[in-house]
Amino acid sequence: MSPKKKNSSSKVESVEMASEVSVLDLPDLVLECILEKLPPEGLCRMAGVCTSLRDWCTSDHLWERHMKNKWGRIVGPAAYREWQFHVVSGKSSIFFNQDKQKGLMGYLIQLWPFALIRSSFSNISKKQSFPPVDSIMSWYLALESGKFWFPAQVYNRENGHIGFMLSCYDAELSYDQRTDTFEARYPPHGRRASAVETGVTWDRLRAPPVDTSPHDLHVSDCLNELKPGDQFEIQWRRNKEFPYGWWYGVVGHLETCDGDANYCRCHDNDTLVLEFNQYTRGSRWRRTTVSRKDHREEGNEADGFYGGIRKLCGKEEISMWKKLWPAEALE
């Protein structure tokens, strides 16, 4: 064989060998690093290539980061319990039907049939759902679908209605991919039907900081440590048929104290002064007191009922309330 023919033959062999190299031939660590850099849409596409990549791309390890980055701040234990209920009851499949799905869900719907066909060839007797119903990927996609309503809390509900300024209320939320906002359904207020608000933005949402129903009194465990200047949230409701909301306030000084830190003994007194400085001086909502020793729900039908108290310690929580501070004092 001439050198020229030999060279051309070796080139053909090299091309053939190169064409046979698969991404699955990469070391596991390298493949994992590549997949970690893919966005959710990319993982969904890759999951439809073959059963091996499907297993890689649906792993909880890869989806934990996406869940935390996008949903971690507003999805808490209560939302996870709601999702687990749907999984156990077999209702999770309703989030993945093919009715006019767009965006990320659209990619999944297109890939789903092919992935199922491939898996049936590889293991006819063992049908596996795609994605696995109890996986983080499924939970992520259910949230994206907008059909999964989950519990969270909304600051300044009902588009910042003046009656709810500097408050945070429980609601059921549904995500709208088209507008990147949420629809919120609030619990009924007495005989009033549930209020609905659309266009709720991400910055007005949070995961519930305590695992207390909006109809139950939160057990206060911080009363003895509160002192003037400390910031807190307190449950308040208009009457006993209403659910509680959380309202922002600051611990104040007793009327007998001049506020001098060297002589202040307010923190030793059984009476705890709560101030809501978003209201004008003289407003009946500006100031109230509760007992440190035997605090339960306190109030009346005229001024509403004050419930449990939680001390604010995190800078992020406090900063959020400061951002919501009204431009003018409330009456």
Rank of each mutant, 00 (worst) to 15 (best):
M1W: 06
K4Q: 14
S9N: 10
S10P: 00
V12N: 11
V21T: 12
L35T: 09
K37T: 06
L38E: 07
E41A: 15
C50L: 09
D55S: 15
C57A: 13
C57P: 05
D60P: 03
H61L: 10
W63L: 02
K68Y: 05
K70F: 10
E82S: 15
W83C: 01
Q84Y: 09
H86Q: 13
S92E: 15
F96Y: 12
Y107C: 13
L116E: 15
V133R: 14
A142E: 00
F148W: 08
Y155S: 05
R157W: 02
N159E: 14
M165T: 14
C168R: 01
A171V: 03
E172F: 09
S174D: 01
R178I: 10
T181A: 01
F182W: 15
R191P: 00
R191N: 13
R192S: 14
A195M: 11
D203V: 03
D203I: 03
R206N: 07
H218W: 11
C222P: 04
D230C: 12
Q231A: 06
W236S: 01
G245M: 09
T256W: 10
D260I: 07
C266K: 11
V273C: 04
L274V: 09
N277Q: 13
Y279P: 03
E298T: 15
A302P: 00
G307L: 03
L312P: 06
W321H: 07
W325M: 06
E331G: 11
